[in-house]
Design a protein around this nucleic acid. Structure first.
Lengths: 207, 207
DNA sequence: ATCAAATTTAAACAAACGTTTAATTTAAAC
DNA sequence: GTTTAAATTAAACGTTTGTTTAAATTTGAT
């Protein structure tokens, strides 16, 4: 269904970086062509138009982004361990595809562009179901509290990550994160720990 | 220092809505002129350029956005009450100025535009200091845990809110939020409660 | 009523935009 | 080697972009 040749994939990757950096409207087809070392006409030739290139990019990445959360749910782990693993999985996936998410979020929240988000929403709904099952398991075992807004749990997890990303210049400044290496380390250690700690506290604290 | 006449303020408000909806690059000066019922040339006449209009807008809103957190800190409240009030204050302010924040975040995270964020960063640093003082007060009274990443607390608070905003179409769907009224209610009730609960759990839970 | 400054206008500007064209080169099949 | 389709190119297309111009209008003080 989504079969692109090497040339097309290279264009998609270049476009992904530019769209994430400068936005869709802020990136011209000439920018893309220059970065990918191709002729401008190749974009229309391969994808039809700039907007269809964006749609192709989203489909390409979503098909590459399927979480194996069901496997996680079936593993022999305590609910708390599952939550830990789930957060690690979440952060890793969105950190690796942060450019993609940045584009999608901007284009979604601005109702201007009409892009097909059905596949994206289906993925989110599915992830939410798996999470609900894990939470219910923990509640049945009297490990987790029952007055938790499960729908907003992924929002807190991903929101914390994305707000960190959005304010990267601020955190670079106050936390002395000079290289991309420093940032990756902070994300995979401090930030992940903070999120795990937060979610676990919310699920297990005594009133 | 930031003295705009009525006409300029109307242009700023119109521009704010359009920028938030369609992005800076996605909004033309003709769009702004049309919405504000003015001639295109008035934008250059009053602000110099489209980009200087954006800078004026940010300055205008930030000077309008000063949180009286110091007053909160000095009030006779328990640390937990202070945190509750602080979260209410945070959510109320960013929800009222969500368009502004959307613009700033996008323009900051894309390093493309060079806008003066110093005033914005100073505000954030100041808010962080006030929060640190409240947390320390709670820790000295043995109410709050000591192993909390305070720097990431506002990130979790605001990140949860913004990620909710960004995925508004998704939540509208699964939570049946049909009108703006429904959304405002959900933000000021369920969402605020969830955030308060989360932060309090993180600050007070037993290991 | 007069005059000067501030405001508003329509028109024009060059530059950049996304897209298309038609000609050329490359690659593969016979 | 010839043929045919695919890939690539430079050039041009018509719009739209942000900005400027110069003339017209409004405003407020004298």
């Amino acid at each position: 269904m989504t079969d692109f040749n090497d040339k097309q994939i290279e264009i998609l990757q270049v476009a992904e970086n530019l769209f994430a950096e400068q936005g869709f409207d802020g990136t011209s087809v000439r920018d893309i062509a220059k970065s990918a070392n191709i002729n401008i006409a190749m974009i229309s030739y391969y994808f039809g138009s700039k907007e269809k290139l964006l749609e192709a990019l989203i489909l390409y990445r979503i098909s590459d982004m399927r979480l194996q959360m069901e496997n996680l749910y079936r593993e022999e782990l305590t609910p708390i361990e599952k939550i830990d693993r789930l957060i690690e999985l979440y952060i890793k996936r969105i950190h690796q595809n942060k450019g993609m998410y940045q584009i999608i979020h901007f284009e979604i929240s601005s109702g201007k562009r009409i892009i097909n988000c059905d596949a994206f929403n289906e993925m989110k709904k599915n992830n939410l179901e798996v999470l609900k099952n894990i939470i219910k398991e923990g509640q049945d075992k009297n490990i987790f509290n029952k007055d938790v807004n499960v729908v907003l749990l992924p929002t807190t997890i991903m929101g914390t990550y994305f707000h960190f990303q959005m304010n990267k210049p601020f955190f670079k400044d106050i936390l002395n994160l000079n290289t991309q290496e420093d940032i990756n380390n902070y994300v995979y250690n401090e930030l992940t720990i903070h999120i795990k700690q937060t979610i676990k506290a919310l699920l297990t604290y005594e009133k």
